[in-house]
Design a protein around this nucleic acid. Structure first.
Lengths: 332, 332
DNA sequence: TCTATTGATTAGAGCGCTCTAATCTTGTAG
DNA sequence: CTACAAGATTAGAGCGCTCTAATCAATAGA
């Protein structure tokens, strides 16, 4: 279990430790002959540089700290995949902590990540107070995903929820729908802008918004539909639903089917997030797609710009969502 | 962005660096008075120990390397959640890499993880050859999840796929099914034992196994059902299907419905993994549950036992799955 | 008074690497 | 044959910490 060090490689290759260091960082100022000898020795010994020692000595870090509230949410899992791909491509590694939507746990997670002296921090939809984030931003660059910030030290990457909702409403109106209800995402970070977008789009079309309180879960979607059906009977029942997210939409569909209503013949349903769920042929859910891997990529890019000190102005990425039309929407 | 060091704290508290070090590791051999002074100084400066420097100096690591093939798979996401919870509780941190089911990328990921000199490695369903794993095991303790190993240096945590399949078959037989087909998971790491369990259970019940080649995706499930329908017409059509996993099951359900067959009235379907998908009321899939968070916990536990050198014998956890009966199974 | 003994504190080396500055080799021009 | 620039190599300090062994202070025993 005791691994060779640079010194071992140097001894075997008959050169100094400094030369091995140069070869390992593939510096151009090493003769081909020596380089070959060093690489051979390293190969024979199974030597790999010690990243931690390297970053200590060089006063740089190749670690990006990532805090994700909940990996079970496919949306975050996708973003993390995007982060990892971009980080690996740039020679960085992710150190991951889960915060579990608890401010206390998130604080601990932040401290833990910072103690690695990461090159930067990426926080996915954190729930800690802005002060805690600004505090972290004093120690290293910070990028927020799915959360806004007013701090000049913090970059953000968000989906344009207003535009996404508008896309969905426009699609439904174009199909001929007039009574379109929105199942609100409650306290979720993304809920407010989606609701706002829905309201504006409805008013823009001269239609009356109908917002039903819900959550980003399938059971909440089912419950919301039951409430809806209590308030509105078939003649005035909304002919289309814009759910808070895909899970919510699936729940809503169940609720509708249980009540004997067919989707999309009687009621059209649109989700949000385009999770793998929506793509299942069994569901084939019309939904709003957020470019998740792209969000991960942009987050890493923004972070590295700060790390390399190429930029000091904050960046606010507002990504444009797109509508994926599948089989849960049709003319009323 | 330049953070204080132990030296700074020592100077401010009027003590030596070594004393600060003792306080930070809360050693008992420090007088209360000094301890208070040091903690105060640290607090005032916002000092936090530098984990990398610490592990370099102490020749120990608090980092666990995790390689996951695909975070989009909810199964792995759940296991990672379990890993993180257990690791955090033990004062360890996860450094995460995705391997994307590609041996080449996985090899790179392994090297990258090892260059951190982690305390140990946890590999979720890796596809690299056993030799590469044994090689890694020569550098630090390794635990495999959802993959077997014959190496004495490697611990494993697996779900008992044979038992899981048997559970499903028994359930179906008890409902009165006689013609039960299995949609095979193809090259997936878990497919072989599930198929074996299916075969044995069928033979045990005096029934003839029917295995249809498939994959662990929903589109493959749909395709497999089409093939099945080509080979077997209604009178001899299997009345129940054991899919390779939940995704596969959902695809199979779509295929059946498209062919005008109802689930579970005409054909019962059982999935495997109990992903969040299965729990959706809309699907309400009968499936085999693997205790995923528990698997994560056990993996960390096994790793730490090796790290602490409490054990040298390999451990083979074979977790007992359970059947979650929902709405896709009924009497034929 | 002097020496043990115990507990608290510190000096200093060293973990595996990087980086600056110094040194050693060449090749080439004068 | 010497001088010198350019390229190749190395010595050595230092990154922020831990750890061993040494030092120091205070009390107790003879």
């Amino acid at each position: 279990m005791v691994r060779p060090t640079m010194e071992d490689v140097a001894a075997r290759a008959g050169v100094s430790r400094a030369l091995v260091s140069l070869v390992m960082r593939n510096s151009p100022k090493v003769s081909d002959q020596r380089r070959a000898a060093v690489l051979l020795a390293a190969e024979e010994l199974g030597y790999e540089p010690h990243v931690m020692a390297r970053s200590l000595a060089s006063r740089t870090s190749t670690v990006l700290g990532v805090m994700v509230s909940d990996l079970r949410n496919a949306f975050f899992a996708d973003v993390v995949e995007g982060l990892d791909a971009a980080a690996q491509a740039a020679g960085f590694n992710l150190i991951l902590n889960t915060g579990g939507r608890s401010p206390v746990r998130e604080r601990a997670a932040l401290r833990s990540l910072l103690s690695f002296r990461p090159a930067g921090l990426i926080l996915l939809s954190p729930v800690v107070p802005a002060a805690a984030i600004d505090d972290a931003a004093g120690q290293c660059p910070v990028v927020l995903v799915s959360r806004t910030s007013r701090s000049a030290d913090v970059d953000t990457v968000n989906d344009d929820g207003e535009a996404g909702s508008a896309l969905a409403v426009d699609h439904l109106v174009r199909l001929g729908h007039r009574r379109i209800a929105h199942l609100d995402g409650g306290g979720a970070a993304t809920a407010a802008s989606r609701r706002r977008g829905y309201r504006q789009a409805m008013i823009g079309h001269g239609l009356e918004p109908i917002v039903i309180g819900s959550e980003h879960t399938d059971s909440a979607g089912e419950k919301a539909v039951r409430e809806l059906l209590m308030q509105y009977s078939p003649p005035i029942l909304p002919t289309a639903l814009l759910a808070g997210n895909d899970f919510n939409a699936v729940g809503a569909i169940s609720g509708l089917e249980e009540a004997g209503l067919r989707v999309p013949e009687d009621v059209s349903v649109v989700g949000y997030d385009n999770t793998s769920l929506a793509a299942l042929r069994h569901l084939s859910l019309t939904t709003v797609d957020q470019p998740r891997t792209e969000m991960g990529r942009l987050a890493v890019e923004a972070l590295l710009e700060r790390v390399r000190e190429e930029r000091t102005e904050p960046v606010r990425h507002l990504l444009h969502p797109s509508l994926v039309v599948r089989s849960t929407t049709a003319a009323p």
